[in-house]
């Protein structure tokens, strides 16, 4: 018998199958909406912008990226570049090793769902094929169509397309990187980005 079989046999002895799955949790009655999301995002150290109409988006993004990049390099993932149009950013190309992004100042990535109460934005593999990019950049800018904003995490979870949910990764991002490990003093930018901006896109 292999180690696997031994372990499973022991587990089987302690797993009497008495209980039933309790079912899905009903989502709580929470208001949701962009203002709630923006307030929650501010609470976790991020900043919300807009929502902008598709026409106004380009201009707003150019301004934001210029401010955040501080002269450094800006890179947009393909689906974000499509939304953002042309501006002071390059589109991330395939193939690229993760290390090629070590000097990125600002990264632009599209989100596919978000939860207002905890300001978490989901980023899937198809929108962030270069997995390390949103973590190596100094500042991250997420683009979020407001129609994909749900009041809570349960409903936001259901908005992630099933296929994407089974892709390599889905990362929920809430605010910039942070730590409070030194005397509980909150510091942004532990290893990941120092700042997070979420730009809303109106329908």
């Amino acid at each position: 018998m292999s180690e696997r079989d031994d372990i499973l046999a022991r587990v089987r002895q302690g797993a009497p199958r008495r209980t039933r799955h309790p079912g899905l949790h009903p989502p709580p009655a929470l208001p949701g909406g962009w203002d709630v999301f923006a307030a929650a995002l501010a609470g976790v150290g991020g900043e919300a912008h807009g929502p902008y109409s598709p026409h106004a988006l380009g201009g707003a993004l150019k301004e934001l990226v210029r401010r955040r990049a501080e002269g450094g390099r800006a890179v947009a993932e393909p689906s974000a570049a499509e939304l953002a149009g042309r501006g002071p950013w390059e589109t991330a190309r395939e193939p690229a090793t993760a290390h090629a992004f070590a000097d990125v100042g600002v990264a632009l990535v599209k989100g596919c769902a978000a939860a207002a109460d905890c300001a978490a934005v989901a980023v899937t593999e198809s929108d962030a094929p270069h997995r390390a990019l949103p973590f190596l950049c100094q500042r991250l800018v997420l683009l979020l169509p407001v129609s994909l904003l749900a009041p809570d995490l349960h409903r936001a979870w259901a908005l992630v397309p099933a296929a994407a949910a089974r892709g390599h990764h889905v990362t929920w991002i809430s605010g910039p990187s942070k730590t409070a490990d030194i005397e509980q003093v909150l510091v942004y930018g532990a290893h990941g980005p120092l700042g997070l901006d979420v730009v809303g896109i109106a329908d």
């Binding site: 609470g43 939860a115 929920w172 809430s174």
Partner: peptide, 9 residues
């Protein structure tokens, strides 16, 4: 906190 900064599936 309402949720960790990063939750990766």
């Amino acid at each position: 906190q309402p949720i960790s900064a990063y939750t990766s599936v």
